[in-house]
Amino acid sequence: MRAAVLTGFGAPLTVRKVPEPEACGGEVVVEVLATCVLPYTEEVFSGRRNYPLEPPVVPGPGGVGRVVRAGPDATRLRVGDLVWCDPTVRARDNALTPDIMLQGLSSRGEGGARLARHLPDGSFAERMRVPTENVHPLPPEARDDPARWSSLVVYAIPYGGLLAAGLQAGETVLVSGSTGNLGSAAVAMALAMGAGRVVAPGRDRDALGLLSDRFGRRVRTVGLTGDEDTDRAAMTTAAGGPIDVVIDLLPPAAPSAVTRAAAMTVREYGRVVLMGGVGMLGGADLALPYPWLMRNSVTVRGQWLGPRTANVGLIRLVASGALDLSADRIRTFPLDAVNEALAYAAAHGGPFDRTVLTPRVA
């Protein structure tokens, strides 16, 4: 089969023949129909993001495909099934604190790196090998547009964060970083999960306008000035009442003061979830006042990705129409144009822009 291989950081991907993946017990081989190229992928492959990815490797996190082979422990999956492959792989030998990797993109700690060496099969390939528990059947309507459904990898991140926050119907959510690719997905996700109102701050006026046009009165946009006190007051005013949940999805280059301004809008007994990259490239750490946290009983938690069960809920949200993907802008590239896809994704990382690689034709 053919795959795109990252031979070293800073080098272009090379499309070449590689051995066919074989499914052992607890694994499934999937023919990849569509995989989303995240806007920051080029930053990872160049080495600028310093992700713990070990070349040579076939990269690519998750995707939509057809089951080709399944191990003997698969009791429901059948050859030919259309499936979503969740890239969040967890070790099976420690239920309390499992090692984690994001297949084809990143990992956590030495245990995660060992997982990545065992599963170097990313989705930028005609076929990939995936743990059985990471393969989830898709509804029949997904067959009509697998490229659009491959954007589940984007929506899964804020969905995991909002689940971690315990978002309840009718609550007000503030999305820090709402004009970015992940942040705008979080705005859509919060509304799909029943948020009564979403506060969407940002500097990009065009992106803020797009959010207002797409979602109407339930989204309150705020143009940020860069002054922490001014911005915090503006976000609080825009909410028109208590802010129950703050979710931060700002990229690594963002200053921690922007995250702090957003976090400190949350109400007493409110919840703050940190999922972005602030601090990954250096700069000031996020400093939240101890007395404010303690006296207001604020919960702050980090969340990397989401639980396995989130995949089922996410697929149901899309299938029901509660999360509408029809307005997302999709641009597809064949496997041979993988480097062009990386460049396009980097240049089109705005709200609801999706760059998709299609190793196999549906």
Rank of each mutant, 00 (worst) to 15 (best):
A253E: 14
R108E: 14
M189K: 06
R271E: 03
T299S: 14
A74D: 12
T236H: 05
R69N: 03
A113F: 04
S176L: 01
R90Q: 12
D99R: 10
R316Q: 14
M193H: 12
G177Y: 03
V272F: 03
G65M: 04
R78Q: 14
D324C: 10
V67E: 10
M193G: 03
R127S: 11
T355F: 14
R66Y: 04
E228Y: 00
R197G: 01
G202F: 05
L357P: 09
S184F: 01
L105C: 12
A254G: 08
M128P: 06
R48G: 02
G349T: 07
L293I: 15
P21W: 05
V246R: 01
N181V: 00
N181P: 01
L211A: 07
G240A: 10
E126R: 15
A362M: 02
P307A: 15
R232M: 03
S326Y: 04
D248Y: 02
L335K: 07
I247K: 01
L174Q: 01
R90I: 00
P359N: 13
P87I: 07
M128R: 10
T237W: 02
A188N: 03
P19T: 08
V318D: 00
A262L: 09
G226P: 10
D285N: 13
S46F: 04
A253G: 11
G160K: 03
R360S: 15
V44F: 10
H348P: 06
V153F: 11
A195E: 06
L82N: 06
G60N: 03
T97I: 12
K17H: 12
G306M: 01
L77M: 11
A3D: 09
R148F: 02
S107W: 02
V258C: 06
A343S: 15
G109T: 10
M294A: 15
P72S: 14
A322L: 14
V154T: 13
G109E: 09
V64H: 01
G282T: 13
F9T: 05
V44S: 07
T259A: 15
L167K: 03
T355H: 12
F333T: 08
Q303F: 01
G240M: 12
H136Q: 10
R218I: 05
L163A: 08
P19E: 10
V37Q: 03
A319C: 06
L293C: 12
E228G: 03
A261H: 05
P120C: 11
G240Q: 11
A319D: 15
D206Q: 12
A319H: 13
Y40D: 12
V198A: 09
A341E: 05
M280H: 12
R354Y: 02
A234T: 10
A165M: 11
V298Q: 07
Y155H: 13
L53A: 09
P131T: 04
G313D: 11
N339H: 13
D204V: 00
S176R: 03
T35A: 14
P131H: 11
A195W: 04
G112K: 05
G160D: 01
P131A: 07
R48A: 14
